[in-house]
Write a protein that binds this DNA or RNA. Structure first.
Lengths: 414, 414
DNA sequence: CTCTATTTTTTCGAGCCTCGAAAAAATACT
DNA sequence: AGTATTTTTTCGAGGCTCGAAAAAATAGAG
């Protein structure tokens, strides 16, 4: 059950409010913050002078608008980049990357690495992840002692509490508690996030106009994933990261999916499924890895002539359309961002997708549903992880004490 | 954006907290409330003496457990039934009912009425609804001047803000702003709720053990509806009441649904669909109304022998199973309550349903998914409306002032 | 160059609210 | 009748936010 509000929670919540207002707005003045938060000027003044003294915020000289106005110029408040730093670790198919990001959100160091995730044994995979992090810590150029949090993103299913990878297409291994492993290894709070959820978080930061309260990010890649934001909050399952859009059932008993079941949306719209159909292979054929270059070539051929390649994209569009239609029956339509290599072929997918969606309950507003595309998912995932880690720092370290549910993490206060 | 917490919000929130603790717990002592809310004894003491003085709570003599313990006996706190009252209006196919419920949740008056909703013109339908409410107000036995809120429940789609019926299977009419109509007519805040959502709310109150944070209520009746609670909160769409489980797509281009589209879950599992299949009629046959008695007879025949009737229920189970599987892919499995006349035939539905679900992503935990049945939906809907209305009173009238999002409603403070 | 209008930010006292400790109240046990 | 025990109330302390007023910092006017 939710819990009563203590008197001291007040300050903490309002501190968090101010920090988040600054993170969102860039260089707001105290007056602007007072307006957006609804708190009085006195309160904002008190809180921000605390935060400045603690080295969390910094004053920056007046913005350009100052010269136009009459009275005392506004003083912009910004996040102090040196307040702390966070680290992101993104593990995807055959690829591992790490980045250090300062408190203001700028990347200050990074490293990328190819590895063979599909065949790697458990210890080695974990070892690679901890090693790449450790190398960052050992870099003498950086004062990495100030890293306050690690957010790891992975393609696959994670648990609701953001502690472990439960299942992933990039490895046959399951149930790896990466968050706990990193915490034990480095003594820093860590979380394990789902890649598509992080894409959604990143979109919310990149384009808050379009991706605000309700939207959908769909990853069109080898597999089909989804990140969903509803009422401004990231949607997760009751036990797992949830939102396994790719494994909604498109045709009961239909094409063979990578997950071993039949008829999933992914079994028609994943890279391997498009490839399979374009080559006129059986729907029962084992899913195979298809490179991004091959997919781009496939899309080019589909654009050239109306052959089996175009038909394969049509089928993908149909599966995505009926899947989205079912989803929209549940949550109502919302803006969609298509991310990943096949998003670059969305022109081939869209007609069949819209036709399918129009045949569903969500299709009433079919025409008003807008799609946007972004071919490159990795930067989005990293950005999402960074924002997530910074968000935790904002709330749990710089405005500590408010009741948390997560149980672990969040002990080292400045 | 969310807004800073003012100083006076504190008291109001904690008042709401205490009221809700009392509503939930029955007759808790001050000490118990302090424990569940986490607030100090002094605070609870202050707040509850306020609430008693305002006539919202009453002290009741010690419970039976008092004789066992040593010290000063606990004094139970209860909701004062006379504090206020709410009214529920439930409109379903050919049936309209109203009830007056006191602040403690007891029904103190009711009226039910048959009418032909399918053919009624707009004015007449609205007129019947306002008339049945007015008759309650005119009843001299009741001090109905104290009615603080009306909650209307309807089979069909409502908007997110609980103001209007957007679409309903019980009438060809659309977009009737019942909440506004009732507010204008009687000057009392009103809301327009979706029937299945209210079923879910009622289940949460009836059996909080089983139906707590995450569960699904599915209405198996003429149509198929769903009420969904996730993380303790009623799930709604971004624009409408949402959760139109019955119109997820089971088979693209498949059987004709009452909604005019094809292949919806409902087109296989709604009463009319089961009837159609049992009679071996075409899947394109116009949906017809089937009475509850006919459905019960159909179920009996299906249990007797393995004929087309049993096959019809099998198909229904398959559609529901694949639909649930897709839903579980999104939200993970959760306990399910099957409500409505076909819930009484769940024995005929369950085998195919479980078989289908096992073929989906949600089916990993297929065996652990538990189903419960409740053949009678109307009492549930009424209970849900009552609890919802009382919840609004608790929060908006007896603990007023906390920022609201809904824009309208909630102006008459005690 | 000085003065005034204007806008932002800080200061200060007032009013609430919650908390902890201690007191008061109400009962069972001895 | 006295003591132990548990619940509830009382009371002063400490914090927080708010509004009003003061202080600070600038542009424009004369």
């Amino acid at each position: 059950m939710s819990v009563g509000i203590r008197h001291d929670d007040l300050r903490r919540r309002n501190r968090a409010m101010v920090i988040s207002a600054v993170r969102r707005a860039g260089q707001p003045s105290r007056t602007e913050i007072a307006a957006t938060t609804g708190l009085s000027h006195s309160t904002i003044s008190a809180i921000s002078s605390d935060l400045i003294q603690e080295g969390i915020l910094t004053e920056s000289k007046p913005s350009e608008a100052a010269s136009l106005k009459r009275g005392r110029p506004q003083v912009g408040l910004g996040l102090n980049p040196e307040a702390t730093a966070v680290m992101t670790v993104v593990l995807s198919l055959n690829f591992l990357s790490v980045a250090v990001i300062d408190y203001a959100g700028q990347v200050i160091a990074e490293e990328q690495r190819r590895l063979d995730t599909l065949t790697m044994p458990r210890d080695e995979l974990i070892g690679e992840c901890t090693a790449i992090v450790r190398r960052r810590f050992e870099d003498p150029d950086l004062d990495v002692r100030s890293v306050a949090r690690i957010a790891m993103g992975i393609q696959g299913i994670t648990d609701t509490h953001a502690r472990a990878m439960l299942w992933s297409p990039i490895t046959p291994l399951t149930d790896i508690p990466f968050a706990d492993i990193l915490e034990a290894e480095f003594g820093i709070p860590a979380t394990m996030e789902n890649d598509c959820n992080m894409m959604a978080v990143a979109l919310q930061w990149r384009d808050p106009e379009r991706y605000r309260d309700d939207f959908i990010a769909i990853l069109l890649s080898h597999g089909i994933g989804m990140g969903l934001v509803l009422k401004g909050e990231l949607f997760t399952g009751t036990h797992s990261s949830g939102g396994e859009f790719g494994h909604m059932i498109h045709r009961p008993g239909g094409a063979l999916c990578r997950c071993g079941r039949r008829g999933c949306v992914e079994a028609y719209a994943g890279n391997y499924a498009i490839w399979r159909n374009a080559r006129m292979m059986s729907e029962d054929a084992e899913p195979t890895d298809v490179g991004d270059a091959d997919m781009r070539a496939l899309a080019a051929r589909a654009r050239e002539s109306d052959g089996p390649e175009r038909e394969a994209y049509r089928k993908a569009g149909e599966a995505l359309g009926f899947g989205l239609g079912s989803l929209f029956a549940l949550i109502d339509p919302a803006p969609v961002a298509m991310v990943g290599v096949s998003a670059a072929a969305f022109d081939l997918i869209e007609p069949a997708l819209r036709e399918a969606i129009a045949q569903t309950a969500g299709g009433q507003h079919s025409k008003s549903i807008s799609f946007d595309t972004e071919p490159n998912e990795l930067p989005l995932i990293r950005e999402g992880c960074a924002m997530r880690a910074l968000g935790f720092v904002d709330q749990e370290i710089f405005a500590p004490g408010v009741q948390q549910r997560t149980g672990s993490a969040g002990k080292n206060v400045a």
